[in-house]
Amino acid sequence: MSTIQPTRGEIRTGPMLPHETVQKGHHWRTRDDEFDAGKLGMWLFLATELLLFSGLFCGYAVMRLLYPEAFANGSHYLDWRWGGLNTLVLLVSSYTMAAAIRHTQVGDRARAQMALIVTWLCALAFLLVKLFLEYIPKWSEGKRPGVLFDYPYAQHEMEPMWWSLYYASTGIHASHVIIGMGLIGWLIYRNAKGWYGPKNYLAMENIGLYWHIVDLIWIFLFPLLYLIH
């Protein structure tokens, strides 16, 4: 296990940055306890996220078992190239997020900031692809969920169900991406103010964990929606 010492930071004069003066909460014995507790809390929250999506996966599994043909048709309506592009975008953003945490751990605030901004831009790219290349063309063709369905060339009676699950799962996922963008934006702002450093990066770590879970969900949604037929 390699631990890199925070040697990168040069000796500075002038006022302390916020991350150098952060104190522990009054009810904690040590900052380490506080850090571990924060992470445990985040993992529990991630557990709830996974279970939230498990409802959608469950609906997908059941409906797929019942109507395999409608779902095969459905996956053919989707273009794997856009899905694949979005997968790559999210993977890169996951990498930059992890890198941002690493840079913060070794005290390299400027590179961390760079990585965070790339992450944020990737999230934006994901949403733009989703919205302009997937949702809007499909919606205007009448490929809509449930009773809104209005696509005249459908080949299976259960295709509205496919679109319901498609919009529900990608929509709830996209809402998580939007929330993630907000959080990462907040990180960028706070990092610019000097809030994060080797001794204080719990918030970045936790938002990173959240962002990776968003990526993780997409890692499963992509083959389920675009590839399996």
Binding site: T3, P6, R31
Partner: peptide, 12 residues
């Protein structure tokens, strides 16, 4: 050990 310095740093 109290300030998070001991936490694992993943290499680039």
């Amino acid at each position: 050990a109290h300030d998070g310095e001991g936490h694992h740093v993943t290499s680039l």
